[in-house]
Design a protein around this nucleic acid. Sequence first.
DNA 1: TTCAATAGTTCTCAAAAAGAGAATCTTTTG
DNA 2: CAAAAGATTCTCTTTTTGAGAACTATTGAA
Lengths: 292, 292
Amino acid sequence: MNQPKNKSQEKVGEIMELISLKTFKAVVDEAGIKGASDKLNTVQSNISSRIQRLEQELGVRLFQLKGRKLELTANGKLLYPYACQILQLEKQAKDAIRIHEGQYELVIGTPETFAAIHLPRALKGLRREHSHIQPRIYTATSGQLISAVKNNTVDCAFVGGHIINDDFVSIPAVVEKMVKITASDGHYDPVLFVRGEGCGYRQAALAWQREMGNTEQQLMEMSSVDGVLGCVAAGLGYTIMGWDMVRNNRYEDSLAVEALTDHHANLQISLIYKNDCLLETGIQALASFFAP
Amino acid sequence: MNQPKNKSQEKVGEIMELISLKTFKAVVDEAGIKGASDKLNTVQSNISSRIQRLEQELGVRLFQLKGRKLELTANGKLLYPYACQILQLEKQAKDAIRIHEGQYELVIGTPETFAAIHLPRALKGLRREHSHIQPRIYTATSGQLISAVKNNTVDCAFVGGHIINDDFVSIPAVVEKMVKITASDGHYDPVLFVRGEGCGYRQAALAWQREMGNTEQQLMEMSSVDGVLGCVAAGLGYTIMGWDMVRNNRYEDSLAVEALTDHHANLQISLIYKNDCLLETGIQALASFFAP
DNA sequence: TTCAATAGTTCTCAAAAAGAGAATCTTTTG
DNA sequence: CAAAAGATTCTCTTTTTGAGAACTATTGAA
């Protein structure tokens, strides 16, 4: 932010507003005004002026231009943890009231793949047995989902693998049988198809490939599961995924699967949430639909 | 608040604003819209509409009319502690930045009596040796000051007696010699003059009177120390106060003092503050001017 | 019972603030 | 050096806020 020209009367001491804090946090988290304006769906100029307002209210600069990026000042760094805490309390206050009212929204983070295969059944059950919970789905990659939980962007999320963090509670949801998928005619190129950065299957596939010593193989990245399976069905390569991805897939008949072995055989998918989350009972209700 | 007519689209979910929370807290603390509007210096209609806005944002009622007073609903009671915590964090965030900037405001609560006698010297020293601290004085009775500290209305306060509360830090400031004050000619009516509710001297005086077994004596309440001393000088009664109150007082020559004994002899006045206060070093600087 | 005082709400209008979009400036990148 | 990316500034419109007056309901006193 550039210093406000030279308005002699800097009105310091006015009350900070939450919209300013939310904007501030978004700018920090999304590393810039552009990202923040997308996240908060508004235009850049608004973000810019909200930050300027906040800077005026506090009487200090929070960012400084470094090239064409913004950089937190010392005061900005000081404010950030307070902003997070205040916004979290705001959310908790609302949650507390919603819970008391009986009706509340539960924001569920999930990778697209999980949303397509495993989630629908659980959501149906949730609606039937816990109609006071209004689920809202937020899709992102496993990697992004972990920060989304930390961030309180979502109340809980389904992610692959194990989370080693004391701030989270992790409930096992499903175990996916991991398989190597090839064209059903047995002819395929030695190319490993994977999904983009952040996908749980990608990590599993790369780990498997590494242990097999096939690191020199060509890697092919695609953003959708269907895209990957289509290419594999066409004999352009092979992939590693959960078996469930293949069943009922449009290419199912053209694909052959082979179960992985040992520690690659299964991918544990867990439902995680922060352990100070007020919506815990709702989350456990959701988890109950995955109980064995 | 009366239910908003029947605006079909209740816009629930908008961000809570701090001004709303501050207003909400003020209405609760001051037990009504009137008090809150005085405290936040604005008109009643604004308070009323801010509360209605907040109620809309949350989608619930926070108050209900009980006669011509407002009463917190269950949801209001739920919100209150969050509001307090959020507002306190806001204050702390600002403090953190101010401290980092070097300059900061220290709001000092004091009874009028203390402000007149003991405080000026310390403020002078503070200004000389810690010019980065900008002291602001808030006067109220000892009783009110304790809640003001709890409330974060003030950063610290001078109060009589001992505070038994783990949330406070208490630094001894001065010890006042308590004396019984009468007209210098020895003739006075058996009437005890005291200051209004909440005054530290009043409590001391009443405690002494009780132990002397003079509870049947007439009690006369006056709002100012000078008023009390004037009446006592005129022989209308006697009073119990700190000796310092008499020294250099306009009526000094017409008054006789007699030291109290035992546990009545001294009144400890301490500087208290919340132990999570960021301005601790400033407060200790203030206290240092009272060190023995 | 009536009347004044008190507390809260509603309504209206003017002033202030916030948002959208276009234009501008600056740095980075190809 | 041109194009792209990111941030800021400016303008205009819409929305929100606030002050004040009028209104309603309760309380308390004469």
